[in-house]
Design a protein around this nucleic acid. Structure first.
Length: 327
DNA sequence: CATCAGGGCCCTG
DNA sequence: CAGGGCCCTGAT
């Protein structure tokens, strides 16, 4: 395990997201499986970030309102950061958290939808985010495959303990992501020792794609959705389900919905057709419904409804859902 | 104790 | 294009 690094240098910046802006539903997603690189409580999110080869500690605090948003960002680092690096970091964070997103059209188009309208009003200004890089998201996507949430948590933790850095800042301790180069020389057996099973090979091959082939995330952002999709599908261990998440969360395609997996199909059947798990609606029929109701914003619309469900679950157990997600 | 399927994907036939 | 195999783990 890596030695803990105390991050002593701190600087504070204020960011003004576009209004309306909902801090908590943007900076915390209760459906994400918990990882030890971040924490949240109302009005505050902590996380680590590997940026330009530096391990950083970040703290976001809500200093505004929905109509007049303001986010105070504290950045901890081992050494003092230069201006250019900080500027680049702010740009990147603004992108990853969609802080400049204009939701006006989305809000206007769906405010009359009987199901989505009330949720838009409740969570006005909610965005999506991908806190880490494309590489980090790919690793998480691999950890999600074919296992329960608890196992995903255990595997990710084992990887952090072996390859991540331990950062201390703001009187807290978190793990920070490794770079592809740091894990590139790990053997399949070494990875299997962390009980990731056959996913070891996917980790190796995806990592190699960044180290050897030099996948450039920033460049990929400029490509079309189809080009992005094809590039991602070429990666070993990355299929349509993982790509679907990435096109939405990492590349911000609000209409990206090419694939509905079985467990999502069951949840959608309940949410949109009041069907129980024994008699789910076909994926095709769900697709037709979304195309008709939410065209142009299919995934974002579903995300709002989905997140609303998982926020409710924070306060009260939802019996039918508990059975499906199996923590 | 044994058995099984899980928040996919690859590979084979 | 359908279906078996893959790792490990918790549920039964």
């Amino acid at each position: 395990m890596s030695r803990a690094r105390q991050l002593k240098h701190k600087r504070v910046i204020e960011i003004e997201p576009t209004a309306p802006f909902n801090f908590d539903t943007t900076f915390h997603k209760p459906d994400h499986f918990p990882t030890s690189d971040n924490a949240w409580e109302p009005g505050v999110r902590w996380q680590t970030m590997l940026w330009q080869g530096k391990c950083l500690g970040l703290k976001f605090e809500n200093r505004g309102t929905i109509a007049q948003p303001c986010v105070r960002l504290s950045i901890w680092s081992k050494q003092k950061l230069n201006r250019a690096l900080v500027d680049g970091l702010i740009t990147e964070i603004t992108f990853r958290y969609n802080l400049q997103l204009d939701l006006a059209e989305f809000n206007r188009r769906f405010r009359a939808d009987p199901q989505l309208g009330p949720i838009i009003r409740k969570w006005r200004g909610m965005r999506t985010f991908s806190a880490g890089s494309l590489y980090e998201y790919l690793i998480i996507a691999i950890m999600l495959q074919n296992c329960t949430v608890r196992r995903s948590v255990n595997m990710m933790q084992a990887l952090y303990e072996k390859y991540g850095a331990v950062l201390k800042f703001d009187a807290r301790t978190f793990y920070c992501m490794w770079s592809p180069e740091e894990i590139d020389r790990a053997t399949e057996q070494e990875l299997r020792g962390l009980k990731v099973g056959y996913r070891a090979k996917s980790i190796q091959r995806v990592t190699a794609a960044f180290v050897v082939n030099g996948i450039d995330e920033i460049e990929l952002r400029g490509k079309s959705r189809e080009e992005q999709r094809n590039t991602l599908l070429e990666l070993y261990g990355i299929g349509p389900q993982s790509v679907g998440y990435i096109l939405f969360d990492v590349f911000h395609h609000w209409d990206a919905m090419d694939h509905i997996s079985p467990w999502e199909q069951i949840i959608y059947s309940k949410l949109f057709f009041s069907r129980n798990a024994e008699k789910p609606v076909s994926a095709d029929r769900l697709m037709r419904l979304f195309a008709k109701r939410f065209s142009g914003y299919r995934m974002l619309a579903v995300h709002y409804i989905w997140e609303d469900l998982f926020w409710k679950r924070q306060h009260a157990k939802i019996e039918w859902l508990e059975k499906l997600i199996r923590l």
